[in-house]
């Protein structure tokens, strides 16, 4: 029976995600929401921007994901002198045994399944833009040759929100390519104790590979088939359009927002809501799913104006106002 098969697939989905979370949890202390959001991004086939102060375990978490998912992992430390070729690779002259010389492409660290772009805002815009094609098209072009990146391909970028000196804020086009922007919060007191115990003793944890890249691609396809009712889609549309000033039902948007979110925001909202529904044991998307994923999916996609910046508002404050002022509009 079709419904039984669906229940089985959903159970498999939940089980795999549970196992990955458990494996990551062997290394990471706390940050469950962050782990869930990163995993959601991976299952949606998107990229995530992790924002948090140094030392919160961002890099460790990404490395652990690479281990648990049996994916090729690479790390790029972004610095002001990093060049695009350092990321995508370059053609080098290679000498054959016969003595002939030819150009040979030397792939950069971008050619991996899971790429950690550490402190991405430290690189120059020129270098940052080298990531654009890779993130959106999942391919890179060097010279005249375009090369596909391995599947699955995920970029997990980090940036430090405090230390702004010598940084280059990501352009809007670059930000829009991140599926989620996840805020990594400071650990709780009890979590800090556990972190100390794990890192200052002989504690060693073995991370087991619980899923392959193929598994991840299969789960991503499954998540896209979760049904969503028209009224729920309409609500997602209203949430997105509410980020645009002038006609927004949100007072804060009309007053403090310079520019609203792009349609990629809507795609992220719906896809993330579908994954959340499956993880919640449901076969349908609920309004609550959309409300829950609205923060990571939209917070980096619209921009405050000068007045909003001066008021010290964050985009999360505006999203909260949007969620309050946009009705679900059920019949």
């Amino acid at each position: 029976m079709a419904s039984d098969a669906a229940a089985e697939m959903a159970a498999r989905f939940t089980a795999v995600v549970g196992e990955v979370e458990r494996e990551v949890g062997r290394v990471m202390v706390g940050q469950r929401d962050v782990v869930r959001q990163v995993l959601t991004t991976i299952l949606a086939g998107g990229h995530v921007l992790l924002e948090g102060v140094p030392g919160l375990g961002k890099t460790v978490m990404v490395k652990t994901f690479g281990q648990a998912l049996d994916l090729k992992f690479s790390r790029i430390q972004f610095t002001p002198d990093l060049m695009p070729a350092d990321i995508v690779g370059t053609n080098v002259i290679a000498e054959e045994p016969s003595g002939a010389r030819r150009f040979e492409f030397q792939p950069g660290p971008i050619f991996a399944n899971l790429v950690l772009a550490d402190e991405i805002n430290r690189a120059t815009p020129k270098t940052q833009s080298a990531m654009l094609e890779a993130m959106q098209e999942k391919q890179v072009t060097v010279g005249t040759v375009t090369r596909a990146l391995p599947k699955p391909f995920f970029v997990l970028a980090t940036q430090n929100p405090i230390e702004m000196e010598g940084t280059y804020p990501l352009p809007e086009a670059q930000l829009d390519r991140f599926f989620f922007k996840v805020l990594v919060c400071f650990p709780k007191v009890e979590e800090l104790s556990e972190i100390v115990r794990r890192t200052t003793t002989g504690f060693e944890s073995e991370v087991t590979r619980v899923a392959t890249g193929e598994d991840i691609l299969g789960l991503a396809r499954l998540a896209r088939d979760v049904p969503i009712a028209g009224p729920v889609t309409d609500y997602a549309v209203r949430l997105l359009t509410a980020t645009h000033p002038k006609d927004s039902p949100s007072r804060k948007v009309n007053q403090f927002v310079r520019y609203g979110a792009s349609p990629r925001g809507l795609q992220a909202l719906v896809l993330a809501a579908k994954i959340r529904a499956l993880l919640g044991g449901r076969f349908n998307v609920a309004f609550e799913d959309l409300r829950e994923v609205a923060y990571p999916a939209l917070r980096h996609r619209f921009f405050l104006n000068f007045e909003g910046e001066a008021e010290g508002l964050s985009t999360d404050d505006v999203i909260a106002d949007i969620l309050e002022s946009v009705p679900t509009g059920a019949h």
Binding site: M1, A6, A10, A229, P231, F283, N284
Partner: peptide, 28 residues
Amino acid sequence: ERAVTALYFSDRTRVTEANETAQAFIAA
């Protein structure tokens, strides 16, 4: 939103437009 979704997919044309996996999800 279980009831809203079930009601929305009472329109059979919306079901037939979906692929096999999606139909299984709708039935479930």
